[in-house]
């Protein structure tokens, strides 16, 4: 229980600080910490495969994509910190997310959920492989098609616009 509280505190605080910072590089690095915290939660809950998938996909791949996007879209370190956003927008965001948080907290606390006397589910990687290769093989194929189409589309989107006559690189 204490472990869960520590993990939750580290994760939420790092996410909040990351979204409040002005420097995008610092935000991306703090979000890596946040994703590591989420992976630690998966390990704590006993879902080791998901934890390692989280580390591989988010900490390894998505963070690199984010860092490359930050580096490709910032022309100089000076304008990495963007102009201050308007006060009313931040206020509206605080009100909206606070309202959503209140509704969610009220719903979670007031709902009768199963207690602590639950048999711990044990899923080995072998079970997962059998499930993914047997009953869920169609879903695996669909996810493969989605990933292929999305990555090809990403390459197409990011590579067009080069022939507009203007020089690209500063």
């Amino acid at each position: 229980m204490i472990t869960l509280l520590i993990i939750a505190t580290v994760t939420v605080v790092s996410a909040g600080v990351a979204l409040l910072l002005r420097n995008l590089i610092h935000s991306a690095l703090l979000l890596i910490g946040n994703w590591v915290g989420v992976a630690a939660f998966y390990l704590w809950a006993g879902a080791e495969f998901v934890a390692f998938a989280q580390v591989l996909v988010y900490v390894g791949a998505v963070s690199m994509i984010v860092l490359f996007a930050v580096l490709l879209t910032s022309r100089s370190p000076a304008d990495m910190a963007l102009a201050p956003h308007t006060r009313s927008r931040v206020l509206a965001a605080v009100v909206t997310s606070g309202a959503v948080l209140g509704v969610l907290l009220g719903a979670v606390i007031s709902t009768p959920l199963p207690g602590t006397n639950i048999t711990v589910p044990s899923v080995t990687v072998r079970d997962l492989g059998n499930q993914l290769g047997g009953p869920h093989a169609g879903a695996v194929l669909v996810v493969g098609v989605i990933l292929t189409v999305a990555l090809i589309g990403a390459v197409v989107i990011a590579s067009t616009g080069r022939d507009d006559g203007k020089p690209d690189a500063p």
């Binding site: 990351a18 979204l19 606070g98 948080l101």
Partner: peptide
Amino acid sequence: SALFCVGLFGALA
């Protein structure tokens, strides 16, 4: 829920 609302705040603000 807390993580979701932090993300929502970031996406809106």
